[in-house]
Design a protein around this nucleic acid. Structure first.
Length: 932
RNA sequence: GCCGGGAUGGCGGAAUUGGCAGACGCGCUGGACUUAGGAUCCAGUGCCGUAAAAGGCGUGCAGGUUCAAGUCCUGUUCCCGGCACCA
């Protein structure tokens, strides 16, 4: 025995992850096809994908966590016999490469590819099982050629267009940003940098064409987190309402024109201006069609002879039938509209201001205020104020003239940029009207306070407040009053009927407004996909013919952040010939937003080297099926940006017949952030944990496994050094158990399908066997459902603890042969359970156990419910709701018997003696006795 | 303001449907082994209480439903994330 002791202790050395991981790393390097998906397979397919990283230089812990989740799932699915597609790539266009070029004088391409190489090596070292034969690098022409191709397709269908508009500009990026890239008024990459507004000519993709579908299909994505769906819903911001045309009353415009003419003539007379009654203006307006009549009327009324030019000006003022189209979700309150409010940037505002220097000044001030508030991020708390234009607009429902104001809280880019103001039934309008003493006219009487009997009190006029019919203000639903023929209707009825009425009479209709805007994709930067467009003096905007793709991004370009796209300073690139007329032309020098690259990259993985098409429809069809990627995993920060763009792209690709699926991703998982000391890891806080260091100190398995163990994957994870030490200890424990007991005598081969008979085992052996099957069940269930890998791993730990506490499993078995085969069974299954989480160790132990088949594709263990069953049940007994005792019964004991046993229990007796038993409840899990 | 998510020991976190609160890990305490232990193994560890028991109290807070509530209902506080004058 001493000899054997010695042998055991030799084998019982500490687990050395460095050595073991190196060995397997090198073996895996040899086999490039190890993780390859099969192109043709009878197995069911499974596409698991993690969001591709930007090659910033090195992986961070967030990446490790993300990929550890995906890799565990991929391995689990391999072991379950699926044909798994698990690819990886690089979102490799983008500004950091340009910044590096400026600060380190390295060309962006070189910098990027160097980072790719480094990060790829890190991924391999971490043992992630990717099919590298499908690697996609978006900054290479073989990829971005297809961005250009898609752009042409979008252009052909009118889904890519060019317009001048107010856009977001990040001064640090020196480029335009999409709405989705503005976070709280700041740039998404520079959270301390306020975004400016600039007027620029830009390329847009018509994402709004799919607004309705993008919204509707969210309901068909039960596999997405509710949170993400809600965020997208809010972002798309569908709002049902009505658009109503308030005609601008011409009186003031005409009067102003008169005044101008009169004063130009140098014969300004107060009387004359006083004679300009609205009636007169209206009469003049009627005559405006005919210049001669107009001239005569003018002469008659004022004794003035007008020049031809003045007549023209007048006619223009009169003819211009100006509609102020407002958007409202509460058309039922329209009889309570007491003013119209315009955005300062509104075309009509501008028109009115052009004729009125005083107004011009004030409007410009409002614009400046808005811009400032937007920049400091407190648009939303900005103090409401505005300016009365002196003009009036006519409410088409009652013919009433209401004043037209310009206000700083009206947004040009939502709805029509104009509203009707109903102070009695809208909080903002109420505030505004009180400030400027605008009439507040009640047209709704709420039917009740709050939302029914349980009673959320109304915000104003709640119980104890004034009687309902005297409310000065309410946003509650009720019945219409003072609303002409609509009086008496409920709000709901009115919202149905009034738009129809408006449409009938040609001054409005029911409409739907979205918050979602078209996607501005032009970037005044170098390191991106060139937009394949040419500007010709003769032919205008001309698309580059498909056969000329790709338009290659030139190298050796001097990069600065000043003065627009660096490509403008590359004449060889910029100067070209027009594809239509052959004459001299200029290339578009803006590049595409990098979110274009990531909008469709996962299709490219399915057919990564296709040089005739972005991908083969059939192949993509196989992997995407009807519902898309089976499982997509990434950070929630892309909930809107990337995930809305890719949904748009998928719908477009479907519409041009490339694919059949409506949605790119069937199931989405968003993992939480990795934080340290309660804060996001950042260089400035000095709390960054480096994956390389963790791998060097604890091994890849420990780093990966800890990132799965420390918290449920959807929650934030606080990185604790002592925590990863615990995992390292656990892996050592597993290693020691298997290596110590893998001596020859226990190596009785067991067929994987043959289950040991429970009856043949003594109680201790049976206990550990039961624990095994319970563990398999727990781990398997978690993979199928909740993905709480922290509890999976905890279950495996419990199992290992049990193995240790029953150390001499072999000795206690009834015969050495059974002991040996039970032990082998336990070890084998332990390794299989561990394989998705700690692949290095699992492979090592698998080999140590003498297994020949590749662990990667070894069948996932099955649990036997019979073997997982408890031999005896422990039933807690409560008296009056408090736990007082426990009884032990055999499974299948009748309810009556259990109750009797509980009542007879000694401890229970002491609690119920002398009391009246009201009832005894057995729930299948516990007995509850109620006494009095 | 609106919409999501959360609050459980000294810490990270367990507790699929209302049914033994605190699994598992960390930390701490004690023991074993040892020349040594920052290795390993074993045991203990919510709080109060007790020599030990018994017992009592405990899932942000206040109520409620129930034989039974971390879990359901009502109200409320705080924290995190998203959106925000969206008409």
């Amino acid at each position: 025995m001493p000899q054997e002791e010695h042998t055991a202790s030799m084998r019982d050395e500490r687990y050395n992850p460095e050595q073991v991981e190196k060995k397997w790393f090198e073996r895996w390097q040899q086999d490039s096809a190890l993780y390859a998906a099969e192109p043709h397979s009878t197995k069911p397919k499974y596409y698991v994908l993690e969001m591709l990283p930007y090659p910033s230089g090195a992986l961070h812990m967030g990446h490790v966590r993300n990929y550890a989740i995906g890799d565990a799932l991929a391995r689990y699915m391999w072991m379950n016999g699926y044909n798994v597609l698990h690819p990886m790539g690089w979102d490799s266009f983008g500004l950091p490469a340009e910044n590096a070029a400026i600060s380190a004088k390295v060309p962006p391409r070189e910098w990027t590819l160097r980072n790719v190489a480094n990060m790829k090596a890190q991924m391999k070292r971490l043992g992630f099982g990717y099919d590298w034969s499908r690697e996609v690098t978006t900054c290479l022409p073989e990829y971005y050629k297809w961005n250009q191709w898609f752009f042409l397709k979008l252009f052909e269908r009118g889904l890519a267009y060019r317009k001048k508009s107010r856009v977001n500009w990040c001064p640090k990026c020196a480029t335009v940003l999409a709405n989705e890239q503005v976070v709280g008024g700041c740039c998404w990459r520079h959270e301390d940098t306020l975004v400016e507004q600039r007027e620029l000519e830009q390329w847009f993709l018509r994402t709004t064409k799919y607004a309705e579908e993008l919204l509707r299909d969210l309901d068909r994505l039960p596999g997405w987190p509710e949170k993400v769906r809600t965020m997208q819903r809010n972002w798309i911001g569908r709002s049902e309402g009505a658009q109503v045309d308030f005609r601008l009353d011409q009186s003031k415009r005409v009067a102003d024109t008169f005044r101008r003419i009169v004063s130009r003539k140098g014969t300004v007379e107060q009387i004359l201006i006083d004679r300009l009654t609205p009636d007169l203006v209206e009469r003049v307006a009627e005559l405006s069609q005919d210049a001669t009549q107009l001239s005569m009327a003018f002469e008659e009324a004022f004794g003035l002879d007008l020049s031809k030019a003045e007549i023209d000006a007048l006619q223009l003022a009169l003819k211009d039938d100006v509609n102020i189209s407002v958007f409202t979700t509460r058309i039922d309150t329209i009889f309570g509209a007491t003013s119209v409010q315009l955005a300062p940037q509104h075309a009509i505002t501008q028109k009115l201001a052009a004729a009125d220097p005083e107004l011009r000044k004030k409007v410009d001030q409002l614009i400046a205020e808005q811009a400032k508030a937007r920049e400091t991020g407190d648009i939303g708390n900005i103090e409401k104020h505005g300016v009365n234009t002196g003009h009036f607009a006519v409410n088409p429902f009652n013919g009433e003239k209401v004043p037209v104001w310009v206000a700083n809280y009206i947004l040009m880019d939502y709805g029509t940029g104009a509203i009707m103001s109903v102070p009695a039934h809208d909080e903002r309008d109420y505030e505004f009207a009180k400030k400027y003493s605008i009439e507040i006219r009640q047209v709704i009487v709420p039917t009740k306070y709050g939302n029914g009997e349980t009673g959320v009190p109304a915000r104003r006029g709640g119980p104890g407040g004034p009687p309902l019919h005297e409310l000065p203000f309410t946003t509650l639903d009720g019945k219409l009053i003072n609303s002409g023929k609509f009086t008496g209707l409920t709000c709901d009825e009115a919202i149905q009927k009034m738009p129809a009425f408006a449409e009938q009479h040609g001054f409005g209709k029911a409409t739907v407004t979205f918050r979602l805007k078209d996607w501005g994709i032009s970037r005044q930067r170098y390191w991106g996909t060139p937009i394949p467009m040419v500007y010709c003096e003769k032919d205008g905007v001309v698309p580059v013919p498909e056969k000329d793709l790709p338009i290659i991004l030139p190298e050796n370009v001097e990069i600065t952040l000043a003065g627009g796209s660096p490509l403008q300073r590359v004449p060889e690139f910029m100067n070209t010939t027009c594809p239509k007329c052959g004459g001299p032309a200029r290339r578009e020098t803006d590049t595409m937003d990098t979110f274009v690259d990531s909008s469709w990259y996962f299709y490219r993985y399915t057919d990564a080297h296709n040089d005739r098409a972005p991908f083969d429809s059939k192949i993509a069809g196989y992997w995407f099926g009807e519902k898309g990627i089976d499982q997509y995993i990434g950070g929630v920060e892309h909930a809107i940006l990337h995930l809305i763009y890719s949904r748009f792209w998928t719908k477009f690709m479907r519409d041009i017949g490339l694919i059949k699926n409506d949605e790119p991703v069937e199931r989405l998982f968003t993992q939480g952030m990795v934080i340290k000391d309660g804060a996001k890891m950042s260089k400035s806080l000095g709390n960054v944990v480096s994956p390389d260091e963790m791998v060097a100190r604890f091994g890849a398995d420990a780093a990966r496994m800890y990132s799965l163990f420390a918290a449920p994957p959807d929650r934030d994870l606080d990185w604790q050094e002592t925590g990863i030490e615990g995992i390292q200890r656990f892996l050592g424990r597993v290693y020691r158990f298997v290596s110590r007991n893998s001596s020859v005598e226990t190596q009785v081969p067991t067929s994987p399908n043959q289950t040991l008979q429970a009856t043949s085992l003594p109680p201790e052996a049976r206990a550990i066997q039961r624990k095994l099957h319970q563990t398999i069940k727990r781990v398997t269930d978690d993979f199928q459902g909740r993905w709480h890998f922290n509890t999976c791993i905890a279950a495996i730990m419990e199992f290992v603890n049990e193995l240790y506490s029953q150390t001499a499993v072999g000795e206690r078995a009834s015969s050495p042969a059974i002991a040996g085969s039970l032990l082998a069974d336990l070890q084998r299954n332990l390794v299989l359970l561990l394989a998705p989480f700690a692949p290095y160790l699992a492979h090592e132990l698998w080999e140590m156990l003498g297994e020949k088949a590749n662990l990667l594709k070894a069948p996932w263990p099955k649990y036997d419910p019979e073997l997982a069953k408890e031999d005896e049940l422990e039933i807690p007994v409560q008296v009056n709701g408090k736990l007082r005792s426990k009884i032990v019964v055999a499974p299948g004991t009748s309810e009556e018997e259990i109750k009797q046993k509980a009542l007879a229990d000694e401890k229970i007796q002491s609690y119920i003696a002398g009391k009246q038993i009201v009832k005894v409840i057995f729930t299948g899990k516990l007995v509850s006795i109620v006494v009095r």
